[in-house]
Design a protein around this nucleic acid. Structure first.
Length: 630
RNA sequence: GCCGGCGUAGCUCAGCAGGUAGAGCAGCUGACUUGUAAUCAGAAGGUCGAGGGUUCAAUUCCUUUCGCCGGCACCA
């Protein structure tokens, strides 16, 4: 007798061991069609799993998010199966589920081509049509290793070899293809109808650039054709928000061959920059920072002292002049320490918060460059807080407040800001005791602020743990914008000290912090987030004055002058074009307000106001327009 | 840096199984004087990313190199 308890607490009994699928059939035939897997005593199992003992059972149908992961994981196997059919000498490695899809890494004698991708996709569909059953079997670790070696899959064998010997290994087989996998999987390939292979790329074996490069194929999979189409369509739409595209359309900036990874800011883009910089500056004031400015070029000796030369010399631009070696500064921290060190600091002076819009250059790997998001010349909204150990937590909390106030102002909070705590890496300085304290104070600050956060183990800098704030771009790539880092190393190396209550010299604690990260990246994020439709306060041009015909040019010029005098960012178009043409041009530039001026307006001293979304606000005096809308 | 793709007019793109290039928009000139997302016409615009090679002939094929795009690795 097997007794099953369902989620609604009803019970069912069966006289013999029974598969999950059979139970689903017993409950309802239609259910058995949509079932993907099941939780048996809260453990996830295949539909073929045989229940032989009393247990709780929750069926997973294709309505549930977790089932999507199963579909995608099975789709990865389907991909590997198809590749093995078409390219028998390809070796399989790993094929995990990722956000919105899956990938599979293969070792093959040549890179896959876009044509291959189409062939593979076709083969996959073929395997789906064949409705191949997917079955599970378990082996001891060593026999699993032997099995994969026997079929020439050395990568698989290597993966399994690193699993403890006493663990049972599960294998999944579909037709003549067998893969190592924890499972669960869909019962048959026919459940995998709605997939698409999206891209190919290289990827290092085990994520290590010292290893050989494998061929990675990415795909996505969904329950229905509608879901798949919607996703692909969403991606297409998202690409229209690409900051590089909008940057061109709105004439914000450009990059050219002679200065890879460095930005030429055009008048519109630079206006946007200035607005942001001024706003951040006002926040420095509010949160007790002192703004400074430090040199671009510093003797290499300083970077050797700080420890950066040793670690990052390949990425530091340097030059020689008058037999001295200089580095173009890759970061501002050592400079801020130099300012801190002028004179003697008392504990009473702490905390000292120095901030700089610090221009930095790093020779980033060519493949890392990405529009405004990853550049070689950038400006950090950099700040360093020198304080005592006791002050760390309060300072971190104040920073978090400041960051969220800023992100709120830029309307970035509704899309979610991911908060990550990066903890001690393997290679590090400082005792475990100090790391314990440091990590705890960061974690406590996050908890006190009631934030949801996750840990990135081992991702901290060698000199201290950090909190990072991540936002996504238009197609879901994650970028770090803000961060705050504890540093046990630099104050010591560069001699940032203060005199404590007892008149003794102590090394100050240093917090590195940035809210935007780099202004370039932050603006890139803003462009994509707002799709170029900036709120009025950020819009490079706020108002466009358009006349209908030449007769009204003079009045239009007056309106322009009036707004311009008030500090409003205004543009005038009195060109010899139809009003429809002018409206189109200014609307494409996402200018918030269009003022239409014809005879009616000129005679009555009015302007007619149109919003960039097409809405007509009617006619009003210039004063009313300024008072009510700007 | 690594794997793959791409580089043609200011922009968006077409073309080329090898015979030195074409459209739309923008810009220019002219006409039109316009009421809420593209007025009409004309002329002009390119060492086909750069270097080298094969060839009678290269934008097209090969090769080197630079840059961009998608990933990987990196990110003080």
């Amino acid at each position: 007798m097997v007794k099953i308890v369902l989620p609604d607490n009803t019970e069912r009994s069966f006289s013999n061991p029974i598969s999950v699928l059979s139970i689903a059939k017993d409950i309802s035939p239609s259910l058995s069609k949509s079932i993907i897997a099941a939780f048996v005593n809260d453990e996830i199992k295949d539909t073929s799993y045989i229940i032989s003992q009393d247990c709780s059972l929750k069926l997973i149908t294709d309505k549930e998010p977790i089932a999507l992961d199963i579909i995608r994981h099975s789709a990865a196997h389907l991909l590997a199966h198809a590749v093995k059919c078409l390219f028998p000498t390809a070796q399989v490695t790993i094929g995990p589920v990722i956000e919105n899809g899956f990938y599979y890494d293969f070792s093959y004698e040549r890179p896959f081509t876009p044509d291959d991708l189409r062939e593979i996709e076709k083969k996959m569909s073929h395997l789906v049509d064949m409705n191949i059953e997917i079955s599970r079997k378990e082996l001891s670790r060593d026999s699993a290793v032997d099995y994969f070696l026997s079929i020439g899959e050395k990568y698989k064998a290597e993966i399994i070899s690193s699993i403890p010997a006493d663990q049972t290994i599960s294998l999944y087989t579909q037709g003549d293809f067998t893969d190592l996998c924890r499972g669960p999987h869909v019962p048959s390939t026919s459940k995998l109808r709605y997939f698409k292979l999206t891209k190919i790329s290289g990827a290092y074996w085990r994520g290590d650039s010292n290893n050989e490069m494998l061929q990675r194929i990415y795909g996505t999979a969904w329950f229905t054709k509608n879901d798949l189409d919607a996703y692909l369509n969403m991606l297409q739409e998202a690409e229209k928000r690409d900051h590089r595209k909008i940057g061109k359309q709105l004439d914000l900036f450009h990059i050219q061959e002679e200065a890879p990874g460095m930005i030429f800011w055009h008048p519109n883009g630079w206006t946007l920059w200035q607005i942001i910089e001024q706003y951040i500056r006002s926040m420095y004031k509010k949160y007790g920072y002192l703004e400074v400015r430090t040199p671009q070029l510093l003797d290499r000796v300083l970077w050797e002292k700080s420890g950066h030369w040793e670690k990052f010399q390949d990425d530091i631009f340097s030059l020689e002049s008058d037999k001295r070696q200089y580095a173009i500064k890759p970061m501002n921290c050592p400079c801020h320490v130099q300012i801190y060190k002028q004179g003697i600091t008392s504990y009473r002076d702490l905390p000292i918060r120095l901030a700089e819009f610090g221009s930095c250059h790093r020779n980033e790997a060519s493949g890392a460059l990405h529009g405004l998001m990853r550049v070689r010349g950038f400006t950090q909204d950099d700040g360093h807080i020198f304080c005592t150990e006791e002050q760390i937590q309060v300072e971190v909390m104040n920073f978090i407040d400041m960051l969220f106030e800023v992100y709120g102002k830029f309307d970035l909070l509704n899309q979610g800001v991911a908060v990550k705590l990066s903890t001690r890496p393997v290679k590090r300085i400082g005792t475990d005791d100090v790391w314990d304290k440091a990590e705890n104070s960061l974690a406590e600050a996050l908890n006190t602020k009631g934030l949801e956060w996750s840990i990135l183990p081992g991702e901290g800098a060698f000199y201290g743990p950090k909190i990072e704030f991540e936002v996504k771009d238009c197609i879901g790539r994650k970028w770090t914008t803000g961060s705050i880092q504890l540093d046990f190393s630099m104050p010591n190396r560069l001699g940032a000290e203060y005199i404590n209550v007892d008149g003794e010299k102590k090394t100050a604690v240093m917090l590195h912090r940035a809210i935007c990260g780099s202004l370039e990246r932050f603006i890139g994020i803003l462009i994509e987030h707002h799709m170029g439709i900036f709120p009025l306060w950020l819009a490079p041009i706020q108002v466009a004055v358009l006349n209908i015909s030449e007769k009204q040019s003079e009045y239009a010029n007056g309106v322009f002058a009036r707004l311009n005098k008030d500090g409003i960012r205004v543009l005038i178009d009195i060109s010899n074009e139809k009003i429809g043409y002018k409206i189109r041009q200014t609307t494409l530039k996402k200018i918030p307000y269009l003022l239409i001026i014809g005879d009616k307006e000129t005679e009555n001293n009015l302007v007619t106001v149109r919003l960039r979304d097409g809405k007509d606000l009617g006619s009003m005096s210039i004063d009313d327009f300024i008072r009510n809308y700007l």
